[in-house]
């Protein structure tokens, strides 16, 4: 009897968790240190979570992504989409298809991929809990926004628009 109740409770909890995770998937979180104003792309009102050290002085952002990430940025692009993946990640494949296609078709946008499977220190430095997570990093190495899960193409493009060449 107890077992049946546990089974039922587990299924209900898992269903709730699944719905919550599905709702969060692909949502854009704007990183507050970004120099350009939040364009209010959609519902991400919560702002950022951490990095207190930066001051919003115009044009001179303080927080930069770690050197390992800056090394893979495309110097010719205004914004590089840095996708963080692991070997054990099926949706990373879907994210890769979406992002590389978006970068191919958008001027000033590049896409690259970092495999975090054997680099827990970098995952910790970036405060990444799940893969895929995608960081949008500008040419100065400043993180503009990040997306957990498979990004939604149109939402992402709308959020990046102010940072891209006209």
């Amino acid at each position: 009897m107890t077992g049946a109740l546990v089974a039922l409770g587990t299924l209900l909890l898992a269903a709730a968790a699944g719905l919550a995770l599905r709702a969060r998937d692909g949502r854009i979180r704007v990183t507050a240190a970004a120099p350009s104003a939040d364009t209010g792309s959609g519902n991400s009102g919560s702002g950022n979570s951490g990095s207190v050290s930066s001051e919003p002085v115009s044009g001179q952002p303080v927080d930069k992504v770690p050197e390992d990430v800056r090394a893979v940025l495309d110097p010719a692009a205004a914004v590089t989409l840095v996708q963080l993946s692991t070997t054990f990640c099926t949706p990373c494949r879907h994210a890769r298809v979406v992002l590389s296609d978006l970068a191919d078709r958008t001027d000033g946008l590049a896409h690259t991929d970092i495999d975090l499977t054997d680099r827990p220190a970098l995952a910790a430095a970036l405060a990444v809990l799940r893969t895929p997570t995608t960081l949008a990093v500008d040419a100065h190495g400043v993180e503009l926004l990040r997306v957990g899960g498979v990004p939604k193409r149109n939402d992402l493009l709308a959020a990046l628009r102010p940072h891209l060449p006209a």
């Binding site: 587990t10 699944g18 995770l21 692991t86 054990f88 499977t117 990444v128 809990l129 799940r130 893969t131």
Partner: peptide, 23 residues
């Protein structure tokens, strides 16, 4: 059971997501 059900109903792989955390 929770992990299997999340995978079955939502295609969400708990073990895979946890990999990064474990690491």
């Amino acid at each position: 059971l929770a992990a299997a059900f999340l995978n079955a109903a939502f295609g969400f792989c708990l073990g895979c997501e946890a990999y990064l955390l474990l690491n």
